[in-house]
Amino acid sequence: MATRAQFLARIKAEVAKSSGAFPASSAARPARPLEAAIAIRRQMAERWPEALDRFRAEFEKVAGVFHRVSTSAEVPGAVIAIARDKSAREVVAWDPASLGLDLGPPLAASGLPVRAAAPDDTSETARRRHRDEAARADVGVTGVDVALAETGTLILLSGAGRPRSTSLLPATHVAVFDRRHLVESLEQVGVLLEAVHADPRATSGAMINFITGPSRTADIELTLTRGVHGPKEVHAIFVDEPLGSEDWS
């Protein structure tokens, strides 16, 4: 079996043989990613309305369903309406602190039990229980870390109280976001990703997902079909008044 030292020595020898004709630097990275990220946030504080229009247009092009409400108090009503429409019996959600609001009481009052991911208990028992709940739930409600307008993409960081499967196992995914999350371009996302990785607090989880519409396939005679493994429907609820969730940058 190859050892790391042998393996790398061979590659180093081959690299030494090559022409050296190409510049040894790649794309220019931000020198201070955290500051660059703050600058993007500042720009977007003014430009978010245009970005929201673009996000909505692109999100709808990839079969996303867009909703807009004025305050976070209206979010539970919007979630209940979606859940009723899907004849949902159970809802799984991110922890209220990560989501920026507590769906539990209002949904329970409408007869919809919400299983929220507890951020402080990661025991084997809690993990198994969570998996069963997520696999059974019809609707999964998450927050959003970045909403990318150019492509209609929702970007979610995993972590404490923000399980990976909430946006994956239930047939309907509902994501809640506000103006702070909007960015315009993939290039800006590149800067934010540099910032996330430069900030140890921001990466409490090991996974980041870009979600651009519902799960899809065209593997049977090129017929476009949705919901092959992940959600069949993705809803995005935009809240005009900023949510109480924490920012990562």
């Binding site: 692109e58 990839v62 991911a117 951020p119 990661t122 809690a126 993990r127 969570h130 998996r131 150019e150 492509t151 209609g152 993409t153 995993s158 972590g159 404490a160 399980p163 990976r164 499967s165 993939l186 990466t203 409490s204 989880g205 090991a206 996974m207 980041i208 997902n209 870009f210 979600i211 651009t212 519409g213 519902p214 799960s215 899809r216 992940g230």
Partner: peptide, 22 residues
């Protein structure tokens, strides 16, 4: 011809101690 594929997934090591899944 998609602008982005539906899912782009970043995996950085195994599940962290704070995570329920992974």
């Amino acid at each position: 011809g998609q602008k982005l594929s539906v899912y782009t997934t970043f995996v950085r090591g195994p599940r962290r101690s704070t995570e329920l899944e992974g």
